[in-house]
Design a protein around this nucleic acid. Structure first.
Length: 457
RNA sequence: GUGGCUGUAGCUCAACUGGUUAGAGCACCGGCCUGUGGCGCCGGGGGUUGGGGGUUCAAGUCCCCUCAGCCACCCCA
């Protein structure tokens, strides 16, 4: 279809926006529960904020252009450089540890695919100034807490954890060095996605002998860390990292997260700025891309902002997570307007005409209620009542309200059958005059309907 | 950036080997059954069949280009 959104960009119709709000709402709620505070930065940044550290080749992945002032700019592809700048600028003034989160919309100029668009929303959660592995456990607890908040369990989502320092120690103990080191990282990163034979060939080509090749291949297995505990525990290069990693696992257990977590040395995380414990969240079936990834990057703030503070964080996108929730039927159903009340005509409608309806609408809204109505004199005064009820019902409103006989306004619930529909009447003049008792009565009536609707499937 | 598959109303799909003004259900709008029973009935709007070019008496149907989507690479978020 012509005239749609740009490739890789999404239109959020109300139904889709409700899904997005469901996800971002869970992000905010859990971040708040973990005592993180929200920040944001500009969506458009100087291009060199991203090229300075990553080199010119990253420009191919950026949504960049020259602005009218001749500046080279880019839509932000990630939040970390902005975050690093903001923290660095006030590093001395900020109370440590810093615990911040943000929900930026990020952009990349890449070919769109499933789970991978040119734009997405990504929760960023970061901790700065805390070297203890308790902070690492806390960080993963946030990510898992979000999964639980959205209705996902350990059978749906797995957290895979590793430690770059531990991996480095193990590789050193195995005698992997030089060119082979980079290849070993690549092989681990691609574990399960490339044939073992190809991996072996690449390792051999990098100068490893058969025993070394097999040793690296074995690291891809889930039990690799356990094996290292037994065979390499006494190696000085490994022991310290192993002890730290074990403390981390103990903290996760104390936080009640053991059921979610798998040790897995093949979690390397693409970019090499990670320096310690790293993790990723995947759907348990392994069909989708990673839901979330993060870890410790103790050197990055120094590199980007010139401030030497330990830091760790993760990013969690809305696209893959949304797909998983959709598959599991965990996204909220579509709703109508969600209005509390829909004003329609009634026996008393003709007496006061449209003015009577609008005065009632205005009074109800001043009382804080959400109010919809037909916005047409024809429909209000002339349309058959049953059709007006039909319209009110289709709008998604909880109740219809109309000018009744005897100077009353009557509200009638729209869910279920007529015989069961709750009814509530008040003197019209009292409602329009904002009489406290009348308004509170209506609010209580609406509140009861809302509570009843919330228990429906 | 490379390769493969797909592209008909808002959605799900029809249209025999190319053959009259491209149909249906759902959704939407209006009306009716003089107060809604997740009903019913009548009517309506909406597609230059993704776009462009070509072959043909005739193209949604065949060919080419292009755009978009999906998938696999690449890369990562």
């Amino acid at each position: 279809m012509a005239g749609g959104a740009l490739p890789g960009f999404r239109d959020f119709y109300p139904d889709e926006f409700a899904h997005r709000a469901h996800i971002t709402g869970a992000w905010r709620e859990v971040a708040r529960r973990f005592a993180f505070v929200e920040y944001d930065g500009p969506p458009l940044e100087p291009l060199d904020l991203y090229t300075k550290k990553s080199g010119e080749e990253i420009v191919g992945q950026l949504y960049n252009f020259e602005d009218k002032g001749g500046r080279q700019v880019a839509l932000r592809p990630e939040m970390t450089p902005t975050f690093a700048r903001m923290v660095s600028a006030r590093a001395n003034a900020l109370r440590k540890p810093v615990r911040w989160f943000s929900i930026p919309q990020l952009f990349r100029y890449e070919r769109a695919q499933r789970g991978r668009l040119r734009e997405h929303f990504q929760l960023n959660v970061d901790i700065v100034g805390e070297p203890s592995e308790v902070a690492d456990a806390e960080l993963l607890a946030v990510a898992i807490g979000i999964m639980a908040e959205l209705g996902l369990g350990p059978a749906d989502v797995r957290a895979r954890v590793s430690d770059r320092r531990l991996l480095n120690g193990i590789l050193a103990a195995l005698g992997v060095a030089g060119d082979a080191l980079g290849v070993a990282y690549s092989v681990l990163d691609k574990a399960g996605r490339e044939p073992e034979a190809v991996a072996r060939e690449r390792l051999a080509k990098a100068g490893l002998h058969d025993a070394g090749v097999s040793a690296v291949i074995d690291l891809c297995a889930p039990a690799a860390i356990d094996r290292a505990r037994q065979t390499l525990g006494s190696e000085p290069a490994v022991r310290e990292s192993l002890e730290r990693f074990d403390r981390y696992m103990t903290h996760l257990a104390s936080l009640g997260l053991s059921a979610w977590v798998d040790e897995d040395l093949s979690i390397v995380r693409g970019l090499d700025y990670y320096t310690g414990i790293v993790f990723e969240l995947f759907d348990a079936k392994g069909e989708l891309r990673a839901i979330c990834g993060g870890g410790r990057y103790d050197a990055l703030l120094n590199d980007l902002g010139g401030v030497d503070l330990p830091a760790l964080g993760f990013g969690m996108g809305d696209v893959v997570l949304g797909e998983l929730l959709r598959e599991r039927g965990l996204l909220p159903n579509a709703v109508g307007s969600g209005a509390d009340l829909f004003v329609i005509g009634g026996p008393g409608a003709s007496a006061d005409g449209m003015a009577g309806a609008l005065e009632l609408v205005a009074a109800l809204r001043r009382a804080g209620l959400s109010v919809d109505h037909a916005m047409s004199e024809d429909r209000y005064l002339a349309q058959a009542p049953r059709n007006q009820f039909e319209s009110a019902k289709k709008s998604g409103a909880l109740a219809a309200i109309y000018l009744d006989e005897g100077g009353l306004v009557t509200a009638k619930g729209l869910a279920g059958k007529l015989a069961d529909a709750p009814v509530f009447s008040q003197a019209r003049d009292a409602v329009v005059a904002a009489d406290t008792t009348a308004i509170e009565g209506l609010q209580a009536f609406v509140g009861a309907l809302r509570a009843a609707a919330a228990t429906q499937p």
